Each structure stands twice: as structure tokens, then as C-alpha cells.
Simulated scan of single mutants.
Amino acid sequence: MQIPFLSQLQTLTGPPVNKIVGVAPAGPVRLAAEQILQHVLRGLPELLAAAVGQIASGQLLASYTTSRDFNPAKIIGFNAEVIRQQRQSMQALQLPPDEQLTELLITLRTQLHLLRLLPDGQRFLYVAVDCRDTNLGIAREVMRTCET
């Protein structure tokens, strides 16, 4: 039995765990974001969190997490800002136009956080993994192969 009030009450305790959640309005953008996350989960079943966001607005399109303490909705805007700042840094360096930002890696003591721009240049994929469980090369390859 589905009780709408209980579903809303659950969202107050944090993000749903072990479930892909589409946040964007229903349509092709949301569907594409959810498909990207499904692909990532097939390749990295032990990941901590994953999300697809828009760079310009910092809006979350879809997310997945294994812990209520790890809330991609709270950090996706900050990650979008990191990408925007890195793009500005590259412009300041006056790099050739064929040099494009494709990926950022943030290395913590026990976690790896990867940001990969999707081919449209408007969205990005964020993945957080425990570096004791996941090889960086495998994580990067899974992210590279899910670009749609």
C-alpha cells in the first residue's frame, strides 16, 4: 500500500538509499541521466554515490547513494562550480582551443571523487568511490564508456 505522506516523510530523513532517483522533470533529460547511473552501477556496484548534474545551473538531474549521510543533492552544485572555475582557469592559461576539460579527480584519504563532463558539455557525471574497494583506472573507464 502506498501512502503519499509516508513517502514524503522518508525524504525528510535524507536521500533514498540504494535507489536511482530522478530529480529532473520527466522527459528525455531525466531518462538519459537515469540510464547513465544504471550503467555506472553495473560497472561499479560498490560505489558510494553517483549523480548527474547540469554545469550551468548546478541542478541535480538524477542521483544514487548507498548512505543517507552522503547526499549528492547537497554537493552537486559545488561540483558544478568546481567545473566552472576550472574552465576559467584554462581560459586564463590561454590553452589551444582543442584542449578541453574532460575529467577532474579529487583524491581524499579514503575516497576518490571523479567529475566527468558528458559529451554535450552541459552536464557532468559525479562518482564517489572508496579507494580501498575501487581501482581508479576501472572507475575512469566505466565513466568514460557511459557517455550518452
Rank of each mutant, 00 (worst) to 15 (best):
P4F: 12
L6M: 11
Q10W: 04
Q10T: 01
Q10H: 02
T11N: 06
G14H: 04
G14K: 04
V17Q: 02
K19I: 03
G22H: 00
V23I: 09
V23N: 01
A26P: 15
A26D: 15
G27Y: 08
P28F: 11
L31A: 12
L31K: 08
A32F: 09
E34W: 10
Q35P: 08
Q38C: 06
H39Y: 08
V40D: 06
L41R: 14
L41F: 08
R42G: 08
R42M: 10
G43V: 13
E46N: 05
E46G: 06
E46H: 03
L47G: 07
L48N: 05
L48F: 03
G53M: 09
Q54R: 14
A56I: 10
G58N: 13
Q59G: 05
S63Y: 08
T66C: 09
T66W: 07
T66F: 06
S67Q: 10
D69I: 02
N71H: 09
A73M: 07
I75E: 11
I76M: 14
I76N: 10
I76L: 14
G77C: 14
F78N: 14
F78A: 11
N79C: 13
A80D: 04
E81D: 14
I83Y: 07
Q85M: 13
R87E: 15
R87T: 15
S89E: 12
Q91D: 15
Q91N: 14
A92W: 11
L93G: 14
Q94H: 12
L95T: 15
L95E: 13
D98V: 11
D98L: 10
Q100P: 05
Q100K: 15
Q100F: 06
T102D: 06
E103I: 03
E103Q: 08
L104N: 00
I106G: 05
I106W: 02
T107Y: 07
L108T: 04
T110I: 06
Q111I: 00
Q111K: 12
L112Y: 00
H113A: 01
H113M: 06
L114A: 01
L115G: 01
R116M: 03
R116L: 02
L117T: 02
L118M: 15
P119H: 08
P119M: 03
D120G: 08
G121W: 08
Q122D: 12
Q122N: 14
R123L: 13
R123Q: 15
R123F: 09
F124V: 04
L125F: 09
Y126H: 06
Y126A: 05
V127N: 00
V127G: 00
V129L: 11
V129N: 01
D130Q: 04
R132W: 03
D133P: 00
T134A: 06
N135C: 07
G137Y: 05
G137P: 06
I138R: 11
A139T: 10
A139V: 09
V142P: 11
V142F: 11
R144A: 09
